[in-house]
Design a protein around this nucleic acid. Structure first.
Lengths: 222, 222
DNA sequence: GATTGCCAGATTGCCAGACAATCGGTGTTG
DNA sequence: CAACACCGATTGTCTGGCAATCTGGCAATC
């Protein structure tokens, strides 16, 4: 491999801070509703306050935190109602993307899509929760990137952070990964067959069932 | 009215800076592609560099500017291709919102919607471009707020900045405002009649025609 | 005893100033 | 003419600080 030195952009402290905080929120290190004290975060992350505050503004725009003037940032509690709303928008976006994909995906991307599907299959078989989440995210990332509408992709990515949060929860359900695999394979087959209508339908069904799984996961506790 | 002093949140310098910069971008004060030099903006806006940089991070998240490490922020040139992509996502979101609205809008919101429609009619008659843009934005804001899905509203608002940019351009076309009024009235009537299918269709048609108008406006120059 | 007023600590909003790293252009040199 | 070194301009980041605001508890009042 030797000298993988293709640093496209030199990763600033600010970016690194955003990533660290985002990951901390995903893994539940910060309880929802808990307040984030700037000075504490500075010492924990080893960055200065200006850099931290820039990072917080980015996360605020991602809706991962809320910043109330003179009260500071906090992790908003993600209500079931709101989670449901996210799933509904997911359904809308992913169905559209899948349908478009069926019409215009390139052979290379189709191949990459199949590869990511296989990667998910392996993750599902190995019961590796983290791998399941990342490979599933890859699968959709390829679909969104290949749908021919960069804004659709951009909007979906804006939702992705909160989507992944739930995906981790629901994948832990017994049998959910295998069902998910079947549904994703349906989407892939429809796209490969260049059938937009079937692709939309499969994508919708996948989100619908993911939502149901998330509901169960949420009701039975974390 | 007396002492309308209910300032819910005390408008920080950072927020004010975001608003000023956003407006400056809308009005075309910054040419697309032009670079924004921090020190210059600081003196022009009368704020310190940390505050400015926080504001820039917020605008970056809104996709109104791009920040390349070590090169600084700049206003991205909005290509026609990208504008088209925005219109497509608009169509998706607004059709969905209108359809949901037809099912669940409250009588008060419906009344507010009619009021905003009348406001737009007045603006269209007076040939006041700015008023047309704001009243049209109001009309859709009510629909998105009443559709029952806060995330849909949130995503749409994320697109709104760039939508308004084009709305201003296309409204200036002869007769576009009157056509727009007709289309919006169709949407309103369908919602008032509680007909989701018609509402979706009307919303789609409205976006489609707005897109065509924007295309013409773009081709004939600013 | 409950409510109100108030004060001190903690925290945020904001700023000035500074320094190293990096980028872009310019001139020099082979 | 190309490659290289150089330099101003700009950004990334930090330190330190001060005023404004919030929070929790204490005392005063009814």
């Amino acid at each position: 491999m030797s000298e993988m030195n293709l640093r496209v952009s030199p990763r600033t402290v600010q970016q690194g801070t955003v990533d660290k905080l985002r990951m901390a929120i995903f893994t539940g290190l910060f309880q929802p509703g808990s307040r984030l004290v700037e000075s504490q975060l500075c010492t924990q992350l080893g960055v200065s306050r200006p850099s931290l505050r820039e990072a917080l503004r980015s996360l605020e725009a991602e809706r991962l935190i809320e910043i109330v003037p003179n009260k500071g940032p906090s992790v908003p509690a993600l209500s079931w109602e709101r989670a449901m709303a996210i799933y509904e928008v997911r359904e809308l976006l992913e169905a559209e993307a899948a349908g478009r994909c069926a019409l215009r995906i390139s052979p290379e991307d189709l191949q990459a899509l199949e590869a990511s599907l296989n990667a998910f299959e392996a993750a599902a078989a190995s019961h590796d929760g983290m791998a399941q989440v990342t490979t599933a995210a890859d699968f959709y990332a390829i679909i969104l990137a290949s749908c021919g509408n960069p804004v659709l992709e951009e909007v979906h990515r804006g939702l992705l952070a909160r989507i992944s949060f739930f995906r981790g929860r629901s994948m832990s359900l017994e049998g959910r990964a295998q069902n998910s695999l079947r549904e994703m394979r349906d989407i892939f087959e429809a796209i490969a067959a260049r059938d937009p209508k079937a692709a939309r339908k499969a994508a919708k069904r996948h989100v619908l069932r993911a939502r149901a799984a998330a509901k169960i996961a949420m009701e039975t506790g974390t």
